[in-house]
Amino acid sequence: MIQGVGITHVLIVSTLMFFIGIYGFLTRKNLITILIAIELILNSVAINFIVINKYLFPEKINGQIFSLFIIAVAAAEVAIAIAVVIDFYRINKSIDVEHGETMKY
């Protein structure tokens, strides 16, 4: 708990971070920047878990455990995503999402 800072403030920060991530996800064309946006989203969620754990249920640790898992999943996801991006780059000589449109066929 931070002296003088209510939970709402922290949560507002994570919310804004979340929607900035969404914005990035929706607008970016480069696959890596999309990945960055996703990391932002995941990070904001992790902040949420931790903050709620700390402020509302300090005697428990579930929030921390969950954000640990989120970090682990994010790591796994980035590993795969980077592999896919490199593969994508080798096929299209570019990492623009526009080139991925053909995948719908």
């Binding site: 931070i2 002296q3 003088g4 971070m17 914005y23």
Partner: peptide, 20 residues
């Protein structure tokens, strides 16, 4: 701690925005 939080919050938001 309060000041520190706000500094961190600003860093987070600004750099998030710049990142996207």
């Amino acid at each position: 701690a309060q000041i520190m939080f706000y500094i961190l919050a600003i860093i987070i938001l600004v750099f998030s925005f710049l990142a996207v």
